[in-house]
């Protein structure tokens, strides 16, 4: 629902209003985005969505801040060690932009609560670190007809895609089987790159600007300094989306 801008908001967002206009800014202000995970990907995604003026952000994370998080999870700092990530995340986001609404839930996302957690959101940022929960988010996004902005990282490598129901493959089309769990290596700049791509996708989706990563899996190789893409179609018989818009 578009919401009018105040003079302070016109000033604050003036440089991006030059890009997508007041109407685009109003769309950001009227939007509600869930960020599932307040870690490596969720940190940059949430920070850039907050400063862009997305009106309502909901962080979900069950964890507390540990020292090993601090090479990449830039929502949190040394003073936050031991605190709930949603608590320090909310504090950081409110400090960056007091004019938006930020909320958080310190819970583990499960089959039983995922629907309530997503609520009436306009989109979900997948900033998780495992596929079983990603698939729960993917299913709910498909049921609600809202986009899932996917990202994942390992070492210097990352991937991102945007799953919009009815407009391309869903996450289960792309990844029907999941890799084994591991303590994954990660250099903080990699989720920095991928989380920013996810935030870019959210902003594009909400403002209607540009071309989304639907049907394209973006693959970032930080070691080579190369971004490439794989074109992907819906998978016939996908248990989540059925590969519905296949010709």
């Amino acid at each position: 629902m578009p919401a009018g801008l105040t003079p302070a908001e016109r000033e604050r967002y003036g440089r991006q209003i030059l890009s997508f206009g007041e109407e685009g800014q109003e769309r950001l202000k009227g939007a509600h985005i869930v960020i599932a995970g307040a870690g490596g990907l969720g940190s940059p995604a949430a920070i850039y969505l907050a400063v862009a003026g997305v009106g309502r952000l909901a962080l979900i994370d069950h964890d507390t801040v540990e020292a090993t998080n601090l090479n990449r999870q830039i929502l949190h700092g040394d003073a936050d060690l031991g605190r709930a990530k949603v608590e320090s995340g909310i504090e950081t986001l409110r400090a960056l932009n007091p004019s938006i609404q930020v909320e958080g839930k310190r819970v583990t996302i499960t089959e039983g609560n995922v629907s309530d957690l997503v609520g009436e959101a306009d989109g979900i940022v997948d900033a998780m670190d495992n596929y079983p929960i990603r698939f729960l988010l993917n299913r709910v996004a498909h049921e609600r007809g809202i986009p899932l902005f996917h990202g994942a990282v390992r070492g210097f490598h990352g991937q991102a895609t945007t799953c919009v129901p009815g407009r391309g493959p869903c996450l289960a089309c792309l990844f029907p089987n999941v890799p084994p769990r591991e303590v994954f290596p990660v250099v903080g700049v990699t989720p920095g790159v991928i989380g920013c791509i996810q935030a870019t996708e959210v902003i594009k989706y909400l403002t209607g600007e540009g071309e989304l990563l639907t049907g394209r899996l973006l693959l970032w190789d930080g070691l080579a300094g190369r971004m490439e893409e794989i074109i992907a179609s819906p998978r016939s018989g996908c248990p989540v989306c059925g590969g519905g818009d296949r010709p």
Binding site: M128, D129, N130, A152, V153, P179, F184, L219
Partner: peptide
């Protein structure tokens, strides 16, 4: 042909 594992971390 492209061959790759999904990355999983977040």
């Amino acid at each position: 042909i492209a061959v790759f594992p999904p990355v999983a971390g977040g």
